[in-house]
Computed example of a mutant assay.
Amino acid sequence: MSPATLLAVFVAAGVATFLIRLSFIAVEGRVRLPAWFRGALQFVPAAMLSALIAPDLLMQDGALYLSPHNSRLLAGIVAVFVAARTRSVGWTIVIGMAALIGLQMLQ
């Protein structure tokens, strides 16, 4: 892919993302969204984060990898427990990464 094509893809993706986000801001106050829709919006960040992280934790080489040797999955489980216990993003990242590095060093 040429640099110009790659730049065009990045710019188009950025503009599309901006317009999607702007659409919710622009209609705020003008359109009354149903209560069920507003309630569902609170789950969007968690759903998006899960969709980004789950494949990296659960898959290896394009196949499901549920094994006690899957260091990413084990570190992810540790991070979930830390997040639930501390409610701290910082501690979750630090302890989760330390668990991942430690588990990878053991393999």
Score class of each variant (00 low, 15 high):
R30K: 14
M48A: 14
A79N: 02
G62M: 02
F43T: 06
I25N: 11
L106K: 06
A16P: 03
L7T: 12
A16N: 02
S50K: 09
R30S: 15
S50F: 15
L6G: 05
A63F: 07
V78W: 01
G90E: 14
T17H: 11
I77Y: 00
G14F: 08
P3T: 10
L64H: 01
V27Q: 13
L100I: 01
P45S: 09
G62W: 00
A16W: 03
A13M: 13
G14S: 05
L103M: 06
S50G: 14
I101N: 01
R72H: 02
A8V: 08
S88A: 08
S88V: 10
A83G: 09
S2Q: 11
S71N: 04
R72G: 00
M97S: 13
P34E: 09
S23M: 11
I25Q: 12
L41P: 07
L33H: 09
G76N: 03
F43V: 09
I77N: 06
L103R: 01
V89S: 11
P45K: 10
R32S: 13
L64Y: 02
S88R: 06
I53Q: 01
L103N: 00
F43Y: 12
V44F: 07
V11K: 03
L6M: 07
R32L: 15
V11Y: 08
A16H: 01
L19R: 11
F81G: 09
M105L: 15
A84K: 12
A98Y: 03
L57N: 05
A8Q: 10
V15E: 00
D61F: 00
Q104M: 15
R85A: 15
V94T: 13
D56T: 14
M1R: 12
A40F: 13
R72M: 02
V94L: 14
P55Q: 05
V27C: 07
L7D: 03
S50D: 01
R21Q: 14
P55N: 03
G39E: 09
A84V: 14
A40H: 08
L74C: 02
G29T: 05
I101E: 04
V78I: 10
R72Y: 00
N70M: 03
A47S: 12
T17E: 09
S2D: 13
A4G: 07
F18L: 14
E28A: 15
A8P: 01
A35L: 11
A83D: 10
M48G: 10
A40E: 00
G96T: 01
M105S: 13
I53R: 02
A47R: 04
T86L: 06
I77R: 07
F10H: 12
L103P: 08
L49G: 09
A51C: 10
M59E: 13
R38H: 07
M48L: 15
L106I: 08
A12V: 03
G90W: 10
G39S: 08
V94I: 15
P68E: 03
I25R: 14
L100M: 05
S71V: 06
R85H: 14
S23A: 14
L6I: 13
T92F: 06
G90Q: 11
M97A: 15
F24P: 05
A26Y: 11
P34Q: 11
L33I: 05
Q42M: 13
R32E: 15
L103T: 03
L74I: 12
L103Q: 00
P3S: 12
P3I: 04
N70S: 02
L64K: 00
Q42C: 13
A83V: 01
N70P: 06
T5Y: 13
V9Q: 08
A47Y: 05
I25H: 13
A99I: 09
A4P: 10
I95N: 02
